[in-house]
Design a binder for these strands. Structure first.
Lengths: 187, 187
DNA sequence: TGCAAAAACTAATACCATTAGTTTATTATA
DNA sequence: TATAATAAACTAATGGTATTAGTTTTTGCA
């Protein structure tokens, strides 16, 4: 079935993710990736639909890792504790994989079935975690949107060095989350 | 002093912003911009430090527009009303200038003095708006970070089509903000 | 053993940014 | 008014990029 074994999609995507995390996402080119893998760049078209296809695979891979990581973090927790655990796991992923994270939330083709499925899974985790608060469905959707927006914005701004003093960012993350949760408990 | 008058930095940056908003930020190339302006692409180097310099100018221009827009929106308001006005103006800008907004929060060189000054001005507006709540300084910084993160994350996710149902996003924006403000009033 | 398919390859094309060196037009000065 | 300096355009050339087409090679299976 497969000649020239030893090079498959996971290997390619992981190599690309490593470039993204260590050198930045604009260094992820078919040329640099091919060089890292010891092949010529047109050969990549046998595994991936060009640069656009590679980026989509990276987005799927990142979303999968992120979702798994959050699922692990949430294990056995509920309520406010679970919310804080999600936030911590989210930030830990963004910090450990800066390039991959950036590609994760920037799917060139958000209509892709696999990407959409993982994205929905992440939303479902949050919806499920909020269940204990007994909110009605519409409000739950609003709150989840706010939570996602906050986490993504925080990770994104931090990654770009947008927060002046770097020592207190974790404190900010928690304080803001607590403020949000207090508001939630009072509404 | 200036031969061949008629082409200056603002003209160039506005043309580039138009490309970004109508065709997407990856269509902003020196080639496409030069064509739009009726010149050859190397001529752009007389006004801008290459593609990187162009992107920096776009980020500065966008940040300036955004800050002015928010300043206008806040006029005469205070407290919760001012917070909601900031959020509305922020989202209005991101929606009216999708490409420029994306470039605004992605300065290739965040150390640039002019860019940093506008960014600080935006933070100052928020700090000032929160003054009426009488929070201590540290908490104010945390809350501003949360506010910025939320707004950026919301705009960013919406732009990528990350919210499933598009009809209720404004409702989400307000609801979440209200929840956040309730938490603020109770802490 | 031979055949088909998959995955590598080479060669070529088109687009892009960038640099170097040249021309041209405008402004300021003598 | 004529001339020199300067800024902004230009052409030409280089190197990097993705991508396509067509070819070779290797592997698995009949």
């Amino acid at each position: 079935m497969s000649p020239r074994i030893g090079l498959d999609l996971p290997t390619i995507v992981e190599a690309a993710a490593e470039i993204a995390d260590t050198s930045g996402i604009e260094e992820v080119t078919l040329a640099s990736l091919a060089q890292k893998l010891g092949i010529r760049s047109p050969s990549l078209y046998n595994h991936v639909n060009g640069l656009k296809g590679l980026r989509l695979q990276l987005a799927i891979y990142g979303l999968k890792l992120l979702t798994e990581s959050i699922n692990d973090a949430i294990n056995g927790k509920s309520g406010d504790e679970a919310i804080h655990a999600i936030a911590a796991a989210y930030m830990a992923f963004a910090r450990a994989h800066p390039g991959l994270y950036e590609l994760t939330l920037r799917a060139p083709d958000a209509d892709d079935v696999e990407y959409a499925a993982y994205a929905q899974a992440l939303v479902n985790i949050m919806v499920e975690t909020l269940r204990v608060y007994g909110l009605d469905y519409d409000l739950t959707i609003h709150i989840v949107r706010g939570f996602r927006s906050y986490l993504h914005g925080f990770a994104s701004i931090e990654q770009k060095g947008g927060f002046g003093m770097p020592q207190a960012v974790d404190e900010s993350l928690k304080q803001v989350l607590n403020t949000y949760l207090i508001g939630l408990h009072h509404s």
